[in-house]
């Protein structure tokens, strides 16, 4: 039996606000909405692919956060806990509207079959600065490509590369191993790279 359990000290920018809400200052929940509605809405857009589902996800997430906030144990960052709820809300929503099982992305489909398929020259787009490349058309193409990712890869990609969570945090949010997160992220990025290669192939 552990006599003196060590409490994990988590540096959490939201800790003070969450404690205030849980101590009875419920009106401060609006501050939480203000702080996160933009991020959650954009997370929802990339995960769900349309405005209506993104709005529903944000609303359901905040309602669930409000409902379960008393159970938050301060053992993880609040933001990570909230994204766990948001992720689960997205996945439930998509399962209701789409019954097709997720496609697996195997590494082999991105591997050059033999040496002749290896490009030796750097494509022009990979050498261009971002401001020369990014325009509305490419952004639209990329957003569609993200939505086309099978869900299990998309959620890892969005959490890691768009929302900026670390591998360990993403593993915690999705209740997966860090190794699994790395595998899925790599395949998601390769999928998106192929979409970009296709987009630029005639230029």
């Amino acid at each position: 039996m552990i006599k003196n359990p060590v409490t994990r000290q988590i540096k959490d920018n939201d800790g003070e606000l969450i404690r205030a809400i849980n101590d009875g200052k419920i009106d401060k929940f609006q501050d939480l909405v203000k702080r996160y509605e933009h991020r959650l809405y954009n997370f929802g857009l990339k995960m769900c692919g349309n405005v209506q589902d993104a709005e529903d996800m944000v609303q359901d997430t905040f309602l669930n956060v409000f409902r379960y906030l008393k159970d938050f144990r301060y053992e993880t960052k609040f933001k990570n806990w909230m994204y766990r709820i948001a992720t689960s809300t997205c996945i439930k929503k998509r399962r209701k509207s789409k019954f097709a099982p997720d496609r697996e992305l195997s590494l082999e489909e991105f591997l050059p079959k033999d040496e002749s398929e290896f490009n030796t020259e750097l494509p022009f787009w990979a050498a261009q600065p971002l401001d020369k490349l990014l325009n509305a058309e490419l952004a639209g193409h990329l957003k569609n490509a993200v939505v086309d990712l099978p869900e299990k890869y998309r959620v890892v990609f969005v959490l890691r590369d768009i929302e900026g969570f670390s591998t360990v945090e993403t593993a915690e949010i999705l209740n997966l191993s860090a190794a699994n997160i790395k595998v899925r992220l790599h395949r998601a990025r390769l999928f998106l790279r192929d979409q970009l290669k296709e987009y630029f192939k005639d230029e």
């Binding site: 050498a127 971002l130 490419l138 952004a139 957003k143 990609f157 590369d161 970009l196």
Partner: peptide, 21 residues
């Protein structure tokens, strides 16, 4: 070339504009 195209893919994705609520 493989490394640079992958890095540019990530960079482009990280710099996609957010939408206003």
């Amino acid at each position: 070339a493989c490394l640079e195209t992958l890095k540019k893919t990530i960079e482009l994705c990280k710099n996609m504009d957010d939408q206003p609520v």
